[in-house]
Simulated assay, not measured.
Amino acid sequence: MERADASGDVTTGSPAPSGAPVAEGVRLLDGMPRQRGPADAVSVPPVPMVPPVSPAETAVPDEAVTGKRVLRPWRLLPTPTGTPFTFTFVAVLLVTALVAEYADPALVHALHQGSSTDVAHLLRTPVFVLVTSALWVVGGVASPYAVVLLLVLTALERRIGGLRTAGVFALGHVLATLATEVPVGLAVLVGWLPGSSLHRLDYGVSFGVAASVGALAGLLRPWLGWPVLLVFGGMLVGDLIAYTDPMTNWGHVMALAIGVATWPWARRWRRV
């Protein structure tokens, strides 16, 4: 609190800082900073020398600068390190396709028959035929399903990983197979179909491919994913209307629906 002294001057009541000489007639006011002397100098640590950075290290990718994705056509194909599951699976399918093309027809028929997921085999060796039936491509490597498998599995594995891609493929292959073969067995049991239907030849990768297409459509941008889904689904519905192989055609439609049903998990896997 300020007060007046005997001479009428106003003082603050604060004593002069110790050790600081006060000139006669000069009064100290609170809040006035005093001059720093050499002893009050603040030591500044030396600045470390930073080695020069080459332009290559500071270069920013074109994608980060422009905001546009750089097209890399080679990423459409599988590689041993980038997509190991697809690369290995396609290599196995290539081997079996060569066997089916150049081996003795009787041997090829026996291999197909032993790998068939018909009702009789599903009752005896379900795991064996569910695995081996997916190692053959109907029509060889030049068939449409082989091309779709190559592109779709590669794109799907680059987004959700190899194990999850194998899981989607296996889910569609197994569930669609059971959904088509179990009704055949029940129809034979009640007498609606002859006993020969229990040995119906059934093998190939088409159910797994359809499920993979359905799953991939949910991971693409809407302007691309929905047309892919509609075009592929329209082809399957057209085959079903043609009624050339209704059980297999129904299996394709159900496998596509199974792939679409995996969208919540596939999108979560992609974020992870």
Rank of each mutant, 00 (worst) to 15 (best):
M1P: 01
D5F: 02
A6Q: 05
S7N: 13
S7L: 13
D9G: 00
D9Y: 04
D9L: 09
T11C: 00
T12V: 00
G13E: 09
G13N: 08
S14M: 08
P15L: 11
A16V: 02
A16L: 03
A16R: 13
P21K: 11
G25Y: 09
L28S: 06
P33L: 07
Q35H: 11
R36S: 10
R36N: 04
M49A: 13
V50A: 11
P51T: 12
S54D: 12
A56S: 10
V60S: 08
E63F: 12
T66I: 07
G67P: 07
R69S: 11
R72E: 12
W74S: 02
R75I: 00
P78M: 05
G82K: 03
P84S: 07
A91G: 14
L93A: 08
V95S: 03
A97T: 14
L98S: 10
A103C: 09
P105D: 03
Q113G: 11
S116L: 12
T117Y: 09
T117G: 03
D118K: 01
V119K: 03
A120R: 13
A120V: 06
L123R: 14
T125S: 09
P126I: 13
V127L: 15
V127F: 15
F128C: 00
F128Q: 11
V131H: 02
T132Q: 04
W136I: 07
G139F: 06
G139P: 09
P144N: 07
V147M: 08
V147H: 07
L153V: 08
T154I: 05
L156H: 05
R158Q: 15
L163M: 07
L163Q: 10
A170Q: 06
L178V: 12
T180W: 03
P183V: 10
V184N: 07
V188W: 04
L193V: 02
S197H: 11
V205C: 05
S206A: 14
S206I: 01
S206Q: 02
F207Y: 15
A211E: 09
V213G: 04
V213Y: 04
A215S: 07
L216F: 04
A217R: 02
G218S: 04
L220K: 11
L220W: 05
V231Q: 05
F232V: 08
G233V: 02
V237A: 11
D239C: 02
D239K: 13
L240C: 01
A242D: 04
Y243H: 12
T244M: 06
M247D: 06
G251N: 05
M254H: 04
A255I: 05
L256D: 03
G259M: 09
A261C: 12
T262F: 12
P264F: 07
W269A: 15
W269Q: 15
R271G: 08
R271M: 07
V272F: 01
V272A: 15
